[in-house]
Simulated assay, not measured.
Amino acid sequence: MFNRQNMMLAVHSASFNDEAASELIRELSRYAPNSQIAYRALDIIQHMEHDAKALEDVYQALEQGNCLIPEVKANRD
């Protein structure tokens, strides 16, 4: 069932996971066999870091009440 706390946890967790994965990719990109793969990794890192920041901003807005989420009742059909 959807609820505000579960959604906030999912957004916050996704932000953390994006950041952690981008750090790992950055470390592994040093071992890329060629510059093309290294540049691809750096591009992916940039997108993941942007996503992590955006998700953290959403989480902060939810936590501060600046972004309202209506409660959704479960469909009993």
Rank of each mutant, 00 (worst) to 15 (best):
M1K: 12
M1P: 12
M1C: 06
F2I: 04
F2G: 02
F2H: 04
F2E: 05
N3G: 01
N3S: 01
N3K: 00
R4N: 13
R4Q: 13
N6L: 10
M7H: 09
M7G: 05
M8P: 04
L9Y: 02
A10D: 07
A10Q: 10
A10Y: 05
V11Y: 05
V11S: 06
V11R: 06
H12G: 04
H12R: 04
S13A: 10
S13M: 10
A14S: 07
A14E: 05
F16I: 09
F16T: 06
N17Y: 15
D18I: 03
D18C: 15
D18G: 06
E19K: 12
A20M: 10
A21W: 06
S22D: 04
E23P: 01
E23C: 01
L24Q: 06
L24G: 04
L24P: 00
R26A: 04
L28F: 00
L28M: 06
S29T: 01
S29V: 01
R30G: 11
R30Q: 10
R30M: 08
R30T: 08
Y31Q: 10
Y31G: 11
A32D: 02
A32T: 00
P33F: 03
P33K: 12
P33M: 09
P33W: 04
S35T: 13
Q36W: 11
Q36V: 13
I37W: 04
I37E: 11
A38K: 13
A38I: 02
A38V: 03
R40H: 14
L42Q: 15
L42S: 14
D43A: 07
I44S: 12
Q46W: 00
H47N: 14
M48Y: 09
M48C: 06
E49M: 09
H50R: 12
H50Y: 10
H50G: 09
D51T: 14
D51Q: 14
D51H: 15
D51S: 15
D51M: 11
A52R: 08
K53R: 13
K53C: 05
A54T: 00
A54I: 01
E56Y: 11
D57S: 10
D57Q: 10
V58A: 07
Q60S: 06
A61E: 07
A61V: 02
L62E: 01
L62C: 07
L62R: 03
L62S: 02
L62V: 01
E63P: 03
Q64V: 03
Q64L: 07
N66P: 04
C67E: 13
L68H: 14
L68P: 05
P70F: 05
E71R: 03
R76S: 05
R76W: 05
R76N: 06
D77E: 14
D77F: 15
